[in-house]
Design a protein around this nucleic acid. Sequence first.
DNA 1: GTGGTCTAGACCACC
DNA 2: GTGGTCTAGACCACA
Lengths: 121, 121, 121, 121
Amino acid sequence: MNFSEEKPIYLQIADWLCEQILLGRIKPEERVLSLRELASKLEVNPATVLRAYDMLQEMNIITCKRGMGYFATNEAMERITGLRRQRFIDEELPKLFHTMKLLHIDIGTLVGLYQNNSSEL
Amino acid sequence: MNFSEEKPIYLQIADWLCEQILLGRIKPEERVLSLRELASKLEVNPATVLRAYDMLQEMNIITCKRGMGYFATNEAMERITGLRRQRFIDEELPKLFHTMKLLHIDIGTLVGLYQNNSSEL
Amino acid sequence: MNFSEEKPIYLQIADWLCEQILLGRIKPEERVLSLRELASKLEVNPATVLRAYDMLQEMNIITCKRGMGYFATNEAMERITGLRRQRFIDEELPKLFHTMKLLHIDIGTLVGLYQNNSSEL
Amino acid sequence: MNFSEEKPIYLQIADWLCEQILLGRIKPEERVLSLRELASKLEVNPATVLRAYDMLQEMNIITCKRGMGYFATNEAMERITGLRRQRFIDEELPKLFHTMKLLHIDIGTLVGLYQNNSSEL
DNA sequence: GTGGTCTAGACCACC
DNA sequence: GTGGTCTAGACCACA
């Protein structure tokens, strides 16, 4: 995994784990990698993974069973989708539209780019 | 000017100045406020403004004439638009489309939100 | 290290570090002294060292791993040599030849001085 | 005239004037441009030209006749050549040889570049 | 007046 | 521990 410079690594780890869940690669109630496993896989400090897990735990996305590891909650997916949709609509979209205006990119152009981009995948 | 907490002030100053140029409030070759003027206007330390100006100077958006202050270059606008369009298309759009996919927001929905948003302004 | 008065200290630090790399005292991927370590060793302010490191980072000569310090990139040597050769040939040599002409020093004389100088070392 | 960024303008003006003398474009005892003439020609502040002239006066390269302007001294050429040769040999050459060593440019290469360069002019 | 450098020190986020 | 940001203030060279 490649970490971007602009965001703290622990946030990127949390985001990545959320995506794994959204994509169905981790099911509700399923165990996620242990701190040490994930840390060594990602080549980061376990304390960094811990911080991500702590955060997700507070959001009720994962939960810790002592001695057994961390597990996705059964409401994980709804929590993630809810939080993200809200952030997307309230924060990201306004910025997006502002940028488009400044750069004189109209919505038609955006749709065009979307379709090209989608077909590439 | 109100500074957000999430980004360094010097970056916000740089962004703000770029927008002033994009919006035509500062013309090419025109002098921008001196370090001290801007610093006292924004109530920040001159060194913080300097850091913003340094950055913009390296991007060829402003240039320093010794003892006389900083001036917008005559290619300022193209530089800014160029840099931003590229960043938008290469970095922000892919993220946007990725998020849309994860959240099951299709392009039609986005267009709808765009039109609502535009009519509000 | 003795700093000359004529150049900013941060540039001298940057130059010095580049030479350490060119001379093989710092290998690619190797960690360089932390801001604070180098600052206290050189008896300067950490902010001054930071400025040098910032500059080298933009030139892709060193890179920052968060919380762990700065490391020479694996292309550090090529970058330095490349930048310096170009500057030497494009800027310094023309000045040199120009000066020689004005002072009526011919190339033979220069070669003589070179050989004396080399044998001294 | 194009001023470099790295040196104070007044020094560049002084250097330029010295070169005019070395090249014989200004003869000993001949009048040089007045402060205002030169300032407007170079598009700089007369105070900047004054600073250059002051410096040259202290070096006995030009002299001021009140009410009549500045004149090259009759020893101007020797002064300039003397100062420059010394600086060239004591300061510039050692730096040059040091750079060549670091960049692995040998004296033969330099001679080659010299000959190419000379034939171009 | 302008910008540029440097210091000392505080405070923060991150690993 | 690491780097990053910001402040306050001093001092300098330059125009």
